[in-house]
Amino acid sequence: MFKLSEIQEDALKEAINISIGKAAASLNQMIKEEIFLSVPRVKFAKEKDALGELKLGPEKELSYVSQKFKGTYLDTEAMLLFAETDSLELVKLFLGQHINIEEMSSLEHEAVAEIGNIILNSCMASLANILHDEISGTIPEFVACKAKNIFKMGEKETVEQEILIIFIDFNIKTKEIQGYVILVLDLDSIEVFLNRLLKNLT
């Protein structure tokens, strides 16, 4: 089983912290609301067990935006995840309070996709900067599902596969919007990635 050394974990957390911080700043510019971020939590787990890390019941209706990023040192799936009601609040925050809707339609899905895109791209751009690498990403995909199905989107075998998951609590206090940024890293590439991080950060 893979285990991070203390220095590896610190480097990882610092890199993610910097990247997410940049992402939050770019979001903050758009909505003029203060955004709070937790210290990243790093977990090795099977995808199917990762759910417990999110303090959400398995039947909770969620929506998330997912993008895959690939660079020389990094291969990851990044997600911005909210309870469905919170993502609706987020859309309202972007579009102004005048929209009077209680249910998300495709129009709101598009909006969430773009918001996710902004945050995740910004986060990855910072990470690429740290790695001195180019990280290209796919177009954001919006998914609405129950919490228990979050990690079932990928190929079947990955569910049983151990992965590195990084969680960041993401909080807009005034609107009581709470979300998570989740990075799922493939263990095959983790060593290369961490070495590169350590080299560049120290």
Partner: peptide
């Protein structure tokens, strides 16, 4: 940065 992006009419 070689980033893909999605720009929605809903927001823009």
């Amino acid at each position: 940065l070689k980033q893909s992006a999605f720009i929605s009419h809903t927001i823009n």
